[in-house]
């Protein structure tokens, strides 16, 4: 699955960004630039789906794709899909398209939290069912433990048999549509009284997958569950494990602060001075904000005429390379203004 994702990204970006932008997308690093890119190339689903992905491992994948003749890697670290890669991608698409559910935009944070809640809850439930109140929690993070404790308290009146049945039913419903290995890979993550969950290595070994495949396949199912929780009504138990209260909007912490100051009508220069930031950083924030805000108040940054000019070039040009766009515009229009309009017109 990992290979599919990388090839898919390379195809959609078609040489306009480097392969490291894809790495940043998958790991949700370099927030501002990455968020812009993912919107631009319609790759938001993959945002932050493998945050612990290591650069070395990613490099190996890219290298091997190049060696096998699927992609061509250029000096400037951009890559394009070759003929052989196209057909391979098509083959993989047949295998994965039906089951891919990534929604990194919505779930890159909450999905991870949910997964931890789920693991600890399942463990707790199965131990409590056997009246064993003392056990070593499989998730050590204190916030997760606190959360699950509350959920457990919420259900204190219910018989554990009923909870187990409900859990089984809800999980069954979700997993049933997956190929057996995929569902198995998910089930093997669970720790219960009966058995400790398998480690990533063990799962990879068992299903003859790479570690990266295991990790993204698991995340995929987690995102799927999250989506069902939010978009349907038939996941009552699982829904109580979802961190509803903190909707994850894709915006960096720092950009949020800038947003607060903007709403107090401070100018970019004032914000930069106040926060001891470079003006460019503040501009990046503004672009980030523009992507997620409806009715963004852009008038302080671009004149009406400039806006129309940029918009026109964007419509004419298929390339999303800033340099190509800027060349076709009057000298005085800045990169910032172009990026801003791109954000608003996405």
């Amino acid at each position: 699955m990992f290979t599919y994702i990388v090839l898919d990204c390379i195809q959609k970006i078609s040489g306009e960004r480097t392969v490291y932008n894809i790495y940043h997308l998958l790991t949700a690093k370099k927030a501002t630039q990455t968020i812009q890119d993912s919107n631009l190339f319609e790759l938001t689903g993959y945002y932050g789906i493998d945050k612990s992905l290591r650069r070395e491992d990613y490099d190996l994948v890219i290298q091997s794709l190049a060696e096998q003749g699927y992609i061509q890697l250029h000096q400037d670290q951009t890559a394009i899909l070759l003929q052989k890669g196209e057909s391979y991608l098509q083959k993989l698409e047949g295998e994965f398209q039906a089951i891919i559910c990534f929604d990194g935009t919505r779930f890159h944070q909450s999905g991870q939290q949910f997964a931890n809640h789920l693991l600890l809850f399942v463990q707790t439930l199965t131990y409590m069912h056997q009246k064993q109140t003392h056990f070593i929690p499989i998730i050590e993070d204190a916030a997760t433990q606190q959360y699950v404790k509350q959920v457990w308290y919420h259900y204190r009146q219910q018989a554990s048999t009923i909870l187990l049945k409900t859990l089984y039913r809800e999980l069954y419903q979700l997993l049933n549509k997956y190929p057996a290995d995929m569902a198995g890979l998910f089930v093997d993550h669970l720790t219960t009284r009966e058995r400790v969950g398998l480690s990533t290595y063990q799962i990879a070994e068992k299903y003859k997958l790479s570690l990266l495949d295991v990790s993204v396949s698991y995340t995929n199912i987690i995102h799927d569950i999250c989506r069902h929780i939010l978009d349907t009504d038939n996941m009552s138990l699982l829904s109580s494990l979802y961190p509803h209260r903190q909707p994850s909007v894709m915006i960096s912490e720092s950009a949020k602060q800038t947003q607060r100051l903007l709403s107090k009508n401070l100018s970019m220069a004032e914000i930069a001075a106040m926060r001891k930031l470079k003006i460019n950083t503040v501009m990046d924030h503004i672009i980030e904000i523009a992507y997620i805000t409806n009715n963004f108040h852009w008038q302080p940054y671009v004149s009406d005429i400039q806006y129309q000019q940029i918009k026109q070039v964007l419509q004419q040009l298929t390339s999303r390379k800033l340099k190509n766009i800027k060349e076709r515009l009057p000298e005085e229009i800045s990169y910032f203004q172009i990026q801003l309009v791109m954000a608003l017109e996405k």
């Binding site: 199965t126 069912h129 187990l164 089984y168 999980l171 997993l175 089930v187 669970l190 219960t192 009966e194």
Partner: peptide, 8 residues
């Protein structure tokens, strides 16, 4: 497996 580990 799911049945075994949940229902024990």
């Amino acid at each position: 497996t799911l049945m075994r580990i949940l229902y024990q």
